[in-house]
Design a protein around this nucleic acid. Structure first.
Lengths: 204, 204, 204, 204
DNA sequence: GATGAATGAGCATTCATTCAT
DNA sequence: AATGAATGAATGCTCATTCAT
């Protein structure tokens, strides 16, 4: 509470993102935002004309912050399964830490799927943003598989694009199921990603 | 059972399931239930002491109805990839049609994930039910892979249990992404399942 | 407060009418309605889905209650200016008393014009209701002038219909100006109506 | 006065008057004023300590600007009904045009009665200002009737003062009813004034 | 079994106003 | 003179739940 407010708008966005990920969009009330941000209702409305507008701004911010870590070129870094796994692990850990540092707070829960579902319900345009995040992730995985191929670590006849897509779905599915069954979060997700990747290499 | 309106309790359950799948648990109000069921608020409360209790009952009913179609033994039916694919396709189509017949109504949307997320938020116990549905589905897929193995259609060294788990995650992930990006439903899902299965065979 | 609630719906309508006439439509909040009716917000919403719907119902009730007193036939009762004046006076007094009895409460203010202006702003259809009240009043006045004509109390060449319209406007105008300048009410209005009528007879 | 943007205070007053006449006093928010004036909230508060103070200033300005056109002496100009009618028509048209020029904008609606009712509700003192406008208008009409009398165009025994008052009420009443039933504005009002005047001559 | 009247907490949003800069 | 960040009370409305009948 002794922190400098720095930038009120950003402060609101961070608080909103944390709460949205914790409880979903609809379950977050202005009362929650007020309590957690230390601001008044009116102040929040001063920056965002409605809850929906706040949602879109939060989504844009999240989307923007997700782009950077994947900007590196994995094609030369990935030589075999192990280097693939390590790179992916490092990037996910890096993303998570950067995210935590940025938000300046512990993430209580990472209910990303609920957040997305409610978000597109509130504003259908957000499908596009979500789609871009999706494509970007798949593209990254494809480059990894291309790296494997270049270094002769990929069995003949496997299509890197298809592998990337399948792996992406598997990761998403594993994450969803884990969330549904155990409410794990943060590092658990990273571990799960790691395990899923390992499993994937076993089956292909 | 031959009474008209059949059975009030069941009627409420069906209406609730339809609405929950369409809009999610939280978005369904008693007003919605009243309008769609033709009953009064009091009547619904007569059978279910709270919205949460109704949710649990709906979940139980859904879970029960999902068990039957998977009771058959696929180990002998699945001989190769093609027969695997066909069996899975037929079963999913069968499930869908049975479901529609049971509910006696068109399914407007099948927002299963949102429903599940909100359900476990309202009642953590439901994780168990969801987990059982999950396990059952994976078990079924494993038997299919065992069938493949028995008929020599599985490459040496692949673990049927792992394959089943991976395929299950992939199917779940593909379904989730499709829902997020395109809001497809019903038959679209079946088609997606089919395509995912085909892709899976290509990568293993 | 020891009164029987009798009919909750009617109770709400009466309270709403009283408040609307006192403060105008927009200035009446649900908090006001709750306080004055002794009911809860939810109860009011149980009968009227929105403030606008309540407004329309209030208007309909008022319109209906205004029709009766003018149903008598003035053509034979009005013989000269004096009988005209007396009849009009009696009818207005009667309307007022009936109104007070019906509402079962003192009328704090009779801000009819503000109420009407805000009403048509909220629901343009109400113009029609207001128009009917207007026409009815003019029709009544016309019959009075026809009575005068029949009894030879009207100067040759004067059109009863035109006289009725002019007198109606004069009465409305005088009422409006009185309200704007003095905030008089109830009996003051009656007296003003009487004076305006007398003046009218002087100028024609 | 030659500065651009002329005079901030006057600019605020004009914008406020336009909005008050369009939507009524209560329906105009500071947001509206900010948007239409191009100024900030703080700037408006710099000149007017509250919304009520702004209202009073607007009223004073309006009252002042309404005095000029009636300053001419109609006693010699009005000789018969036709010259009366023409003079009144010309003056009203002149007032309207002057008003438009002064405000430098199209008048979207002229909800004068709503504005007055809300104004006296907010500040009872304004009754006096409104009363003066009223008296002034009646005085002007009386002078017209005196002109008629001087030129022998008035039937014997008619009191010019009473005629003026009655005509004023009729004009106000006709205007109010027209606004309630049809939401006419601007030129429509002028036409209505003309017709009402003509009718008045028919009945006296 | 079943109705629907009634409750009151909670929701997103609007608004006039204050004040540091 | 002018900005716009911040406040907090108030508004219309929704909702799950209770209960007398």
């Amino acid at each position: 509470m002794t922190k400098m407010p720095l930038d009120t708008r950003t402060n609101i966005l961070k608080v909103a993102l944390l709460l949205f990920l914790e409880k979903g969009y609809k379950n977050v009330s202005y009362q929650d935002l007020v309590k957690k941000s230390g601001l008044s209702k009116g102040a929040i409305y001063h920056y965002f004309a409605s809850k929906e507008e706040l949602l879109v701004a939060v989504f844009d911010m999240f989307s923007e912050s997700s782009k950077q870590p994947l900007a590196i070129d994995p094609e030369n870094l990935v030589k075999d399964y192990e280097s693939f796994r390590k790179l992916y692990f490092d990037i996910k850990i890096g993303q998570l830490n950067e995210f935590k540092t940025f938000l300046g707070a512990e993430i209580v829960a990472f209910n990303w799927v609920l957040f997305c579902l409610e978000a597109i319900e509130a504003n259908a345009q957000l499908r596009i943003t979500i789609g871009e995040l999706s494509k970007q992730e798949i593209k990254f995985l494809e480059k990894c598989f291309l790296g494997l191929e270049k270094h002769g670590s990929l069995p003949k006849g496997k299509d890197p694009a298809l592998l990337a897509e399948c792996l992406y779905y598997m990761l998403e599915g594993a994450g969803l199921v884990m969330f549904l069954l155990e409410n794990k979060m943060d590092e658990d997700f990273i571990k799960m990603y790691d395990k899923t990747l390992t499993d994937f290499f076993k089956i292909i």
